[in-house]
Computed example of a mutant assay.
Amino acid sequence: MSVSSMTGFARREGGDETLTWTWEAKSVNGRGLEVRCRVPAGSEALEAKVRAAVPKACARGNVTVSLNMDRGDRGLRLQVNRHVLDQVIHLTRELREEIDAAPPRLDGLLAIRGVLETAEETEEEAIRKAREARLEADLTALLEDLVESRRLEGGRLKETAMAHLDHIAGLTAQARDCAAAQPEALRERLRRQVSDLLEAQAGLPEDRLAQEAALIASKADVREELDRLSAHDAAARELLEEGGAIGRRLDFLCQEFNREANTLCSKAQDVELTRIGLALKNAVEQLREQVQNIE
């Protein structure tokens, strides 16, 4: 399976002898899946189909699907509103008794607002069902286009995420090579700290001295954090190759990356290791920004 983004857009246009329509779908980041649907009045059945179809296409994201319809002049006919026309004629006759004026012309009567109006022609059931079938087919194609749009964006996100993982792996290797992380450097630092401890606490019991030495050693050794960073790096790469709905798991791994980078900074005993730790935190944050776009 491929990696998909939660960001995408698709558009489909269609029509028949009476109507033209435009389907649009767009999706943005979201914690889960949220579907919004906007359809013209009278198309509630299509809204139900949208809400049933989107979860089959998308696992996460805020997805908005809208349908616009335009009838234009097709399927419309002109008709006279007899009720309004009768009122106009009646008033005309009353006024002619008070005002000497020529009788109204037909074009003048039809120009009065409300006299002439449009009405939709009655559609046959077969035509209506055929249109619904075409609208549903266009909806299916629309969601396929949306999925493809999210997949293309996901491919770019995967490349970017892999680049950030390469950077994190490189910084982890630098930390391993750093003299402060090497066993001999740790032993030398431990000897100095124990010597300082003995001078400061003369007559300290041997068991207490052993406890203090072990505590100093554990606080100085960052190899465990580096091993976990490497393990998280391998796990993240496996997820990216696996594809599918991996966004939540990658986000969790980013939290673990950040935890180890923070611990590395707190244990660092020299400027160089601290610099690497800070660079790691920055690289993890950049990775997390990309991961939050992944489905």
Rank of each mutant, 00 (worst) to 15 (best):
A235Q: 14
L204H: 03
L135D: 00
L239P: 03
R208N: 02
Q201K: 07
Q174V: 01
G247Q: 05
A245C: 07
S149N: 09
Q182A: 13
L143A: 04
L142Y: 14
P183A: 13
T160F: 11
R134C: 12
L209I: 06
R249H: 08
S218E: 15
D227Y: 08
I216C: 10
A236S: 13
E238P: 01
P183L: 07
A181C: 12
A214G: 06
Q201C: 06
L197N: 08
L250A: 05
T172M: 04
D227H: 09
A180T: 11
L143N: 13
E206I: 06
G243S: 01
A213L: 01
L143T: 05
L135E: 14
E206D: 15
E225H: 04
A202I: 00
E206S: 08
D196V: 02
Q201Y: 14
E136W: 00
A213D: 07
A234Q: 08
D251M: 02
E238T: 14
R248W: 09
D227L: 12
L135H: 01
R134E: 12
A180E: 15
L204A: 03
Q182E: 11
R187S: 13
E225Y: 03
A214W: 10
E212F: 05
E184F: 00
L198W: 01
R208F: 02
I168W: 04
M162N: 07
R237E: 04
K219I: 00
R192N: 11
L139G: 13
V222A: 14
E153C: 02
T172C: 09
S230K: 03
H164W: 11
L250V: 09
R248P: 08
A169P: 08
A202C: 00
A234V: 02
R187M: 13
R134K: 15
T140D: 14
I168V: 15
R248C: 02
A163E: 12
G170Q: 13
S218L: 04
A141Y: 02
H232F: 11
G243N: 05
V194F: 05
F252M: 04
E199H: 10
R189K: 10
I216N: 06
A236L: 03
L215V: 08
S218K: 10
A169D: 14
P205V: 05
L139H: 14
D221E: 10
E199I: 01
P183R: 11
I168S: 03
A169N: 04
K158T: 12
